[in-house]
Amino acid sequence: MAPGMVPGVPPEPAVIVRGAVREFARPKPYPFAKRPEPFTAVAGVDLEVPHAGSVAIVGESGSGKSTLLRMVVGLLEPTRGDITLGPGAPPQMIFQDAGASLTPWMPIGKQIEERLMALDVPQSERGARVAATLEAVGLPAEAQTAVPRALSGGQRQRAAIARAIAVPPALLACDEPVSALDVSLAAQVLNLLCHLRETLNIALLFVTHDLAAARAVADEVVVMQRGEIVERAPTEQLFTAPAHPYTRELIAAVPEVREVAA
């Protein structure tokens, strides 16, 4: 049983988002011009990821998915609204471009160790923890001394996951964790995420363009459009009875899923 859980009491959600709004200032068209209205990337989102739950966010490009994730993990302050994190280690994130989220000149092992250092894991334990984490994500032990450039794209993806779970967070945000991978690799990474969720009770909040992936991993799917959530439903319901026209469009765009939905 995870720490902080009391029998009989439902565990607190990993994160509760209430009315989150994020605006970005637009540049002035010319000096001394009046400040233009800010651009609203996320326009009032309510969202809840249950303890060890799994929520997928789908939506077109530019709909504010990454911005929402960055607010959830604390990389961006919301302009308005509240983000309440549940108990446990602070959230981590797998970035949209996982390879670029690794420092190019630093060996993978060192980057994982930094995460342990940040949470005051004693020096004597770090080596073993790094090795165990690499093993957990299926990277060979040599990867510890390799710089990111020496790894393949999929290996870098796993290295980024390794850093995020070296100290298991209560919530793992994944920004399109599989969109850059081929089908079998994507399946492996999705399996890994599911496995982490079940063994370590890590809640998942992940963005995807791949509805099949959402279906395989998520309990609930939310659909975003222009910064707002336009539909939210348990995964199966979303596929069998999509309510919003944009959702129908999305489902129609995936041939194999349409057959199931019809």
Binding site: A132, E135, A136, V137, S184, A186, Q188, H195, L196, N201
Partner: peptide, 29 residues
């Protein structure tokens, strides 16, 4: 290769609490 619809691999070995300390090896995968 495992397909997506298979979902997660079954959990084995130490329990979730122990796993929180050190991630369980999933080298099998």
């Amino acid at each position: 290769p495992p397909t997506m619809t298979e979902g997660a691999v079954p959990v084995e070995g130490p329990g979730a609490a122990a796993a929180r300390e050190v991630p369980t090896p999933v080298a099998r995968m």
